[in-house]
Nucleic acid binder design. Structure first.
Lengths: 231, 231
DNA sequence: GCAAAAGTGTTGAAACTACACCCATGC
DNA sequence: GCATGGGTGTAGTTTCAACACTTTTGC
């Protein structure tokens, strides 16, 4: 049974201590004018991974090489697309806040939308569901791997990284303990030698996360019951 | 661009302390007579999850309700199937050794094959690759959730569960410490009151794992360097 | 100097490994 | 009784959360 295969992409970032998602305003029917995830159809000769990367580039201008797209699920309910039998492969990626989208392709506009706001308004197709799954995926990912660094810029401070964890886990972490714990993980953070300029206080060392091995570096969240409330 | 969508299923079990995978011998071209993963094409009106469950049932006789199938990836390289543009959604599941397959559908035969043996012989299509990914997936899954219990029968002893971890992690775990650690996890194991008959030694209490919540129950593998060598 | 943020030292509590030991059964 | 495997007690060590304290900058 032939189907049309599509890729839909959930790009998450953290702005002002909250999750934000990259959405496009659809420029064509169906759901014209509605918010949707960037995405599009498989073309001859390409893999679906390539489709996801291409559509991200075309519709939002975000460089797919920086995004580390991961498959998170396949959506195949009959009737999920009014145009016919369309099956979507969903992708998720975390990027630094600095990434600036620009619309193109099928998209009339591309912009960051706060997660809570995106949840409030119905997205096109079954994209609400895909978005929820992507957020869950990101939370799990961060707990079991060093993926949190993906939310930071190429060079970042330990404090910035800590704030990512605090946002994702909705907790406060002790700055001192976090610093030691993260520095103890071998091969994760690499000092650049440079320091970040601050409005006040001692300048922080800038680090780079090795993008080659962002895997299997557990950073367990603090146990409940004792809490990790900051000072 | 229309594609044919298929589901391929990797069913893993543990036999004699080794991984084994459920393979079928293909009864039709292409790759007739070769080992392959059970699988087949999407039919009108069904989701791809339903396809996976149906094919598992048809080709192997394994009850999909017991298997807890999970999507592990999409395989879309052009040319991966000589019949044309076929995209496969791969699924993985862990089942107890007790499950007995019986062939049907496209499959001439269905049987358990030791993982090492399956790796030695080339499987049909790109099923070698899918199999590798599924094994990795299972190892990760077991580390972060209570999925290990899926390898055990409905009722099992703590020792049987420990042997699953020992196989998956290729370690030896202290029986006493394992017992305490696993019993401390709230809501994981539920005593049935019955005991298992043994050839020798004290009979072991039989437990049931709550199949409703096999999620997010971390059982961290022992740290390296101190080791968890048995007595 | 003072304020602010980075980063280190210390301490008491909890968790874990290793291993001794007791328990319950078949023979 | 003896062998065998299930299950518990416990000491020494490690890890960790909490938080005091030192360091390095801007003003």
């Amino acid at each position: 049974m032939p189907v049309a295969l599509a890729a839909d992409v959930v790009i998450l970032t953290i702005r002002d201590g909250r999750f934000a998602v990259l959405l496009v305003t659809r420029g064509n029917p169906p759901y014209e004018g509605r918010h949707a995830l960037p995405g599009g159809f498989l073309e001859p000769g390409e893999t679906i991974d390539a489709t996801a990367a291409r559509e991200l580039d075309e519709e939002t201008g975000i460089n797919p090489a920086l995004a580390r797209l991961e498959q998170i699920g396949v959506y195949s309910e009959p009737g999920r697309d009014p145009r016919g039998r369309v099956v979507s492969v969903a992708y998720a990626a975390m990027v630094p806040d600095a990434a600036q989208p620009s619309a193109g392709g099928d998209a009339a506009e591309a912009h960051w939308v706060a997660l809570d706001e995106a949840r409030g308004t119905a997205l096109a197709f079954d994209h609400d569901r895909i978005l929820e799954h992507a957020v869950e995926h990101a939370r799990r990912q961060i707990e079991h791997t060093a993926a949190a660094a993906a939310f930071c810029n190429a060079e970042f401070t330990v404090t910035e990284l800590r704030q990512v964890y605090e946002t994702v886990w909705r907790t406060r972490l002790d700055p001192g303990n976090f610093h030691r714990k993260i520095m103890k993980i071998p091969g994760f953070l690499e000092a650049t030698g440079r320091t970040a300029v601050r409005e006040a206080g001692r300048p922080a060392t800038l680090y780079r996360a090795d993008p080659k091995r962002p895997l299997a570096l557990p950073f367990p969240r603090p146990r409940a019951g004792q809490g990790a409330a900051g000072r």
